[in-house]
Design a protein around this nucleic acid. Sequence first.
DNA 1: CCATGGTGAGTGAGCACTCACCCACGCGTC
DNA 2: GACGCGTGGGTGAGTGCTCACTCACCATGG
Lengths: 217, 217
Amino acid sequence: MTDEGNREGAGPLTGGALTRARVLDAAARLIGTVGLVKATTKQIAREAGCSEAALYKHFRDKEEIFVRVLRERAPRLAEAIAELPARAGQGTVREHLEAVVLVAVPFYRQSFPMAGGLLASPELLAAHRRRLDNAGPHHVSSRLADYLRAERRLGRIADVDPDATAMLLIGACFHRAFLEVFYAGEGPADVLRPGALEDFARETVRALLGGIEETAG
Amino acid sequence: MTDEGNREGAGPLTGGALTRARVLDAAARLIGTVGLVKATTKQIAREAGCSEAALYKHFRDKEEIFVRVLRERAPRLAEAIAELPARAGQGTVREHLEAVVLVAVPFYRQSFPMAGGLLASPELLAAHRRRLDNAGPHHVSSRLADYLRAERRLGRIADVDPDATAMLLIGACFHRAFLEVFYAGEGPADVLRPGALEDFARETVRALLGGIEETAG
DNA sequence: CCATGGTGAGTGAGCACTCACCCACGCGTC
DNA sequence: GACGCGTGGGTGAGTGCTCACTCACCATGG
């Protein structure tokens, strides 16, 4: 029941904590490969190299496993973007926004298979929503809007609606990630081309900045 | 096995076609309320007012029910946007883009619960992807980009990347719809305020057009 | 010696789907 | 007009399967 959070410099895992970590890794891997609905307790146990019963020594139920995967294995997008306002005035706005794209798209790509399960079942969604009340998905564009406000205060971008602008960029990332998942393996080739994400970031930010009219940087 | 497509002016439904329609309505309703995973064959039958066995007189399996709901009950977003290029040069670009938002957001909002189930299971997704090879989700922003190209040819908008610009707008709609589903019932109040969608359309398009710099209309 | 972490073998519930059967109705035949 | 009857549309009662989860029991190290 120890609330581990992240584990940096905690030494090699041993005993209970080790299999606990293995279970989370296995669950995350399965969700990414065979999908949430095929990520059964039996599959997770097999992938983690332990018995099904062992899962329940470390997690109350299957739902808690997924919640923990979400909290302990997902990249921290909101936190990463929340650091941006402190960097306002340094570098170029273009660089910062492209960096946002490069972080946001993989984050959403990884989150979609799990979020999909939530969307398909309102009660799971409600439970999950309650657990992250102060870190919901709308905070991403809100924090980006904060950054844009900071840059606007510094006179580095034009006087446009920061919330709407942030929504445009985050939305593009969100949709892009969806397309990557949807067409995984086959489909429109330009979605999975190597270097495609960097091109996407450059073109999208350029199109967005056309409106913001950088006055510096 | 008659491939009905849409049924306009076909008179009141009767006999088999009637219960078939009732099943599709029931399935669509359940997906929207209790979610895809609780939309079991038993629930669908109960909601449609028939027996579970009756479902299988009209549909091969449960998956076909959902595919039919998607094809016969969902609004046709791609087609609606494909008509836009013909309207290039008429009215204002702003009006057309706001109209896109007002159609796209409800479309995505309705699609998310079903699409969520697909994202959670790659094999279902692959099957579905194969069935709509010429109408996949990337066509929406592609068709919008076609419209923007048409307007650019007419000199009504500036010389920006039409694909990236379309992706920004569609992405914002996509993300907005996701937020509406995610926070259904409770959450950030401004997402479900009456008139919120119109405001969103106006602000988003204005932020986008800041970059496009209308030269007319 | 006992808490911690592990196991193999269940268990009941819920799922998609099937089966044997039924009934009403259109229709060619007497 | 009565009649057999095939067929489309419907049913209640299963069937087998998979799922999340549990139970009695075991090992081992502080």
